[in-house]
Design a binder for these strands. Structure first.
Lengths: 218, 218
DNA sequence: TAGATTGTTAATCGATTAACAATC
DNA sequence: TAGATTGTTAATCGATTAACAATC
């Protein structure tokens, strides 16, 4: 389950942040940046930045640093943003609608092809010019349209069923917002967004000091 | 920036998953579980499970394993779920509304006190019995109500401004959905949910094999 | 050229896994 | 009691940081 990346996940998860910071620098007309300078802004060590980037190529120049635009574009390519992706959202509830409406994804190359739900009250309604379809039509839709990324926004009880349909129809990447772990073959990538786990992490940290105070007090 | 936890973040981020799996076991009337058995379900090694839990106490019993209900409740306490938290959401757009409507948080003890936006079209509208208020009233509201967690769902340009208000009013925990990094004092905890970083990670992984194929081909 | 900064190797640090004595 | 399984120490593995020669 979950294809192993050749590059460690620790590195991969930093890439979007590089991309974001370089985009900002670019918008501020910064032409070149050293690992040291970037380090101060982004909060990784200069050493780590150089190590990270050198996994993918020699993008810098001794004595100069990195050309912001070139590096931005390189990391874009590394992230696969030179390509175009078709997506579908299954589940048109709160999160499904929020994701559908987040037009920034479109700008990054992620194109929403269809939205599905099983609730008759939602079927037929339009979100961003997309009519919500009956989830019963999902499989047929996937057979007649090439979809790269399936987005799961249904309650956890139905998530695995949707994942199974995605897998059966050849989808290789799933963005999962349902608070559950999906079982998929090794060649299918799942990226989870578990909001409640994020919130619980926050509440843990908010209480940590007190937790150990109590421990000592006993 | 970002208070260091006494327990490593690697461990902390696994805690909610333990909680989720134990909750499931409990609902399935499983009374006891060994680290080995839990390992097979949750996908961490048995050794890691025992190490993780022993950071917080001796919850198991040799020859028996762990009592599911007791461990579930202990982890709940560790996560701070024995307490009650007041929250406010600032930004009543897609994500703000989605978070506001996610009633499961309420069940976990996170109580939504107010929703704020600056858009006159949204102010006055109700979401789950909460009238969206003008963000200009945020500071006053925070002064007269005890709020534990501030949730930022505004566009990135306005996020820091809201964070500053939160900090000024004594909020110690921020759940940030804006695609930017916030500057806050050391004693304020920020938990980020960066959806586009998650999506870019997915697109990276979808392309990784090809990326290195090209590299070799050159 | 001299100064700056990379790419990369080596050293360190931290997290995970293995092993096993303690004990229920 | 014997078997099972923990808690915990030690070994391993991987990720981060430091150092520095290469070079622009």
């Amino acid at each position: 389950m979950g294809k192993k990346t050749m590059i460690s996940m620790a590195v991969v998860r930093r890439l979007p942040k590089y991309y974001r910071y370089l985009g900002e620098l670019l918008r501020n007309d910064v032409e070149r940046i050293s690992s040291k300078e970037l380090s101060e802004r982004i909060g990784f060590t200069a050493s780590q930045i150089r190590q990270d980037l050198n996994n993918f190529g020699d993008f810098g120049q001794q004595g100069y640093g990195y050309n912001v635009r070139a590096l931005y574009e390189e990391i874009g390519k590394i992230l696969g943003l030179n390509k175009h992706y078709n997506t579908v959202i299954v589940g048109a509830g709160n999160i499904g609608q929020a994701v559908a409406n987040y037009t920034n994804f479109e700008r990054l190359g992620f194109h929403l092809l269809g939205i599905f739900d099983r609730n008759p009250k939602l079927i037929g309604i339009s979100i961003r010019d997309k009519v919500i379809q009956d989830v019963d039509n999902l499989e047929e839709f996937l057979r007649s349209n090439h979809v790269d990324i399936g987005i799961i926004c249904v309650p956890k009880e139905q998530a695995q069923k949707i994942a199974d349909i995605f897998v059966k129809c050849g989808i290789k990447a799933i963005w999962n917002f349902a608070p559950t772990d999906l079982n998929v073959p090794d060649d299918v990538i799942v990226e989870n967004v578990h909001l409640s786990e994020s919130l619980l992490t926050l509440s843990y940290r908010l209480n940590e000091a007190e937790l150990f105070k109590e421990k000592i007090g006993r």
